[in-house]
Every structure is written in C-alpha cells, then in structure tokens.
C-alpha cells in the first residue's frame, strides 16, 4: 500500500516516524495527487515509516485565515491540533508550503507544537545522508531548468537553498529567473486568491511569472507548491507553451531518477 493512516499504525501497535500532511490540494486536486503519490513512493523507497491522517486531516485553515476569517481558522486548527495531539505526533512533513507555514509558525500559539519540515527539506536530508541515491546521468541531467520560489517557503520562511540543493543533486542546468529567492515573484494564488476571481487589472500574475520563466529558455519549471503548480501550468496553457515546458514538483523529479537498488 502506498500509505497507511495513523489509525492503521496504531491498530498494529506501532508508532510511525513521521506524519505526512497531505493537504487539501494533495488530497483532491488531480495534479497535486501525483505529487502526493510521488512523496509516498520516495518515503516508501527509503523505508521511512510514515503515516497520513486520512479522513481525520482537515484543512489547516490557511485560506480562511488569510482571507480574514479567523473564527473559521481557529475552529479548523483546533480540530486538527486535537487530532495531532491525540496521536502524539512529533514530526510532520508537508507537501504544501502553506500547510508548512501555518503548522510550523501559527499552530504553536494554539497549543500545537511539532517539528515541521517541507518535503523539499526532507528530500535534501535524504539525499545528503545518502539514504536516497540518485542515478548518475538521470533524465534531467544538463537540462535547462528554472526554479520558482513559492512565497510561503521562500520569503515567509526563508528556505531558499534546500530545494536548490535537490536540483543540484539532479545535475540540472539551473537557470535562475531575474526575480528569485527573496525577490521571487508570487504565482498569484496566495492569500486565498486561489478561490476567487482576479481583481480588475491588465494581466494575470501567473502570466507575468510564466513570461519570466520562458525568458530563461527553460524546459522545466521546478516548483514546491500545489498552488504554484496549478498557476504556472495555467499560465503556460494560456501562452500555448504547455506542450514544450513542463511544471514539476521537486519530488516528481526525484522519483524519476532514483537509483534502482
């Protein structure tokens, strides 16, 4: 099986090493589900015992809180914390940087204290500790790739190097966009924008970002966030470049290049 729930571990009398926080996008969005599976397969490959919450997981409340709906955020967060604390969860890996940010920075004040990492940080750890061996000359070797910093992993939490270290391990030809790291440009989805129409303007933000990515002559845009992936793919589609340029999550790129043991 791809993944077991915390409850399933418990019924076996076992405690998993880490909780994988899948998130709403990772659970329901067809594109993000692929990333969810990729992360599971990688964790299974390295033999890490991880659990998901399954139906006991709820939205962390990020879009509600950023929209201004604090009541709803507090409610959903409190329910999550009850579940997490009931299972005695110590360590969490998230697929989504919004889940990462809120679990790491905003749940402690509500009584939820966990060690939280984003999956790109975990990947970097696994590669550097040698637990995850990559093929020499994998499918991205020498390929021109650009990396899109998500706001919630980047500026919000200043994690710029772990994802780049993962790309380095893939031996890609990483070409940075002009706006990267601290100056990275948003994909346009954050702050609950994902759930609403754009305000009136000249252009969509994802179009602006995709144009910048295309100007690097890239073949692949590497991302770390389900919302960024949706926005970038939509932007490429609008430019009719979605056949030529692919958007991947880092976990997908790694999964394709794991050395057979």
């Amino acid at each position: 099986m791809l993944a077991k729930t915390y409850a399933e571990y418990q019924s076996e009398g076992k405690t998993p090493e880490i909780l994988f926080w899948v998130g709403c996008a990772g659970s329901f969005d067809a594109r993000a589900q692929k990333v969810t599976r990729a992360i599971c397969e990688i964790l299974n490959h390295v033999g890490m015992e991880f659990a998901i919450l399954g139906n006991e997981e709820r939205c962390t409340g990020d879009p509600a809180r950023r929209a201004g709906n604090e009541f709803l955020f507090q409610m959903t967060a409190m329910m999550n914390i009850e579940t997490l604390n009931m299972y005695g969860v110590k360590k969490i890996v998230t697929a989504c940087p919004h889940c990462f940010n809120i679990l790491k920075n905003e749940y402690p004040e509500l009584g939820g204290h966990y060690e939280v990492v984003h999956h790109t940080q975990l990947l970097q750890d696994l590669i550097h500790s040698g637990k995850l061996q990559l093929k020499g000359g994998g499918s991205f070797k020498g390929k021109r790739i650009t990396y899109h910093d998500s706001c919630y992993l980047g500026r919000a939490n200043e994690i710029y190097e772990a994802p780049r270290a993962v790309l380095e391990a893939l031996d890609t030809d990483l070409t940075e966009m002009k706006r990267s790291r601290k100056n990275g440009l948003c994909c346009g989805a954050g702050g609950a924008q994902m759930w609403k129409e754009d305000e009136p303007g000249d252009k969509r933000i994802n179009t602006e970002r995709v144009e910048e990515a295309l100007s690097t002559g890239t073949e692949v845009i590497a991302a770390n966030c389900p919302f960024c992936i949706t926005m970038l793919q939509d932007g490429l589609k609008a430019k009719e470049k979605n056949e030529q340029v692919m958007v991947y999550d880092l976990s997908e790129m790694i999964l394709n290049n794991i050395q057979d043991s």
């Binding site: 729930t5 139906n55 929209a67």
Partner: peptide
C-alpha cells in the same frame, strides 16, 4: 468580503476541506 470566498469558507466548515469534494480525503491512495 468577496462572494467567491463563501463556498471555500462553507467547505472548510462543513467538509474540512478547502473545496467541497464528495470523495474521501485519502481516495488517492
């Protein structure tokens, strides 16, 4: 606030997810 946000709010409140989905949260596995 934007009316677009209401379905998201309702969905988080009633389904525990940012989108109203009929399938299970772990259907992907």
């Amino acid at each position: 606030g934007p009316a677009d946000w209401l379905p998201m709010f309702n969905s988080i409140e009633n389904n525990g997810a940012a989108w109203a989905m009929s399938e299970d949260r772990d259907a992907w596995r």
